[in-house]
């Protein structure tokens, strides 16, 4: 007797199931893996959670997200069962009050949810943190990000032209997940800076409206590289959502060609953050800065990407704070 709660449907074969899921609007437009009761139970076991365990809620949508919901959508997304604890942590982070699921998934601007993974589980799952980490080719990156988005669609009701009212939306809404290159950087990992013990795994979920590159091919000093990042930030600006008070999170994903000038000169993440923050929020000649950043530690610096292009990517926020949650495997931290 299964302990699962979801209604079960019978199909003659997997293809019939996939076509029916498309017809019912249960996918993002791509094929899914059939969420059989056996697979769903295996995924729940991998996370050490009962089907009815509440992972989070969206009060404005009358939605309660359970571990069974997460497992079903993780299977559908193509995850391996050992990805499940990361998916649960990502869903938990996204459903935090300050992550503002309702607005970030319903907005006209079509914000995407980026999942940044830290800790040893990146290596266990072969999660790409280096060259090509924003793109296709790695199952963990592709399916963990997709699983979060399927939960947002199928459980949190952010269906396009229903509660998702994005004017254009973005391909980053299919999946956007990468890991920090902790092995390629001497810096403190993002998760450790945000209070997770060193050696433990965690995810940070950040809703981003704009993903833009700060390219600087010629600077050879920390100040030069960071001045280019400041210029790119000020050219774009941030919305400065009032309900978040003084808090704003801007994620800066710095590639190795930029990082090395900072690392070689002995700059820490905190040093870089202080330099960027002060200049990013400085007033213009005619009024306040276009960048609303309440505190230096709201600027989150992440090491990732591969060599070649000297660039740092700006993940500008939308109506939410970045939220970090530990990855819990079978009842204990990993």
């Amino acid at each position: 007797m299964s302990a699962l709660h979801a209604p079960q449907h019978a199909y003659n074969d997997g293809l019939e199931l996939v076509e029916d899921y498309h017809a019912r609007g249960w996918t993002d437009g791509l094929p899914i893996v059939p969420p059989t009761p056996e697979l769903v139970e295996e995924f729940l076991e991998a996370a050490g959670l009962s089907p009815g365990h509440v992972v989070g809620t969206v009060p404005t949508r009358e939605v309660t997200v359970t571990a069974e919901h997460v497992a079903i959508n993780a299977v559908m997304a193509g995850c391996r069962r050992d990805y499940m604890p990361v998916v649960v942590a990502a869903v938990r982070a996204h459903l935090h009050e300050k992550a503002n699921c309702h607005s970030t998934t319903g907005t006209l601007s079509g914000a995407a949810q980026v999942v940044i993974v830290n800790g040893p589980i990146r290596l266990d799952l072969d999660l790409n943190c280096t060259a090509g980490c924003f793109g296709p080719g790695w199952r963990a990156n592709a399916t963990i990000g997709r699983a979060l988005r399927l939960v947002i669609r199928n459980v949190c009701r952010a269906v396009p032209n229903f509660l998702d009212r994005a004017s254009f939306s973005t391909p980053a809404r299919y999946s956007f997940c990468f890991g920090e290159d902790e092995e390629g950087s001497p810096w403190l990992p993002l998760s450790v800076e945000r209070g997770i013990p060193a050696g433990a795994s965690a995810v940070t979920v950040h809703s981003t409206m704009t993903v833009a590159a700060a390219v600087d091919l010629t600077s050879r000093t920390p100040e030069g590289v960071l001045d280019s990042i400041v210029a790119a930030l000020r050219a774009r600006g941030t919305a400065g959502d009032r309900w978040l008070g003084e808090d704003t999170n801007v994620v800066l994903v710095m590639g190795p060609e930029h990082r090395r000038y900072l690392v070689d000169a002995g700059w820490s993440k905190a040093d870089a953050r202080a330099y960027v923050w002060e200049r990013a929020v400085a007033p213009t000649k005619h009024g306040p800065s276009p960048v609303k950043g309440g505190r230096p530690d709201g600027f989150l610096l992440v090491a990732a990407g591969g060599p070649g292009m000297a660039e740092t990517w700006l993940l500008l926020p939308h109506l939410a704070l970045a939220v970090t949650q530990p990855v819990v495997v079978g009842g204990g931290p990993r």
């Binding site: 404005t60 949508r61 009358e62 319903g106 009701r157 032209n161 229903f162 509660l163 009212r165």
Partner: peptide, 15 residues
């Protein structure tokens, strides 16, 4: 008017 569909959806999910 652009958001009317979303408003109807929100009314619906709110019962």
């Amino acid at each position: 008017e652009t958001m009317a569909g979303s408003a109807r959806a929100m009314a619906r999910v709110s019962g």
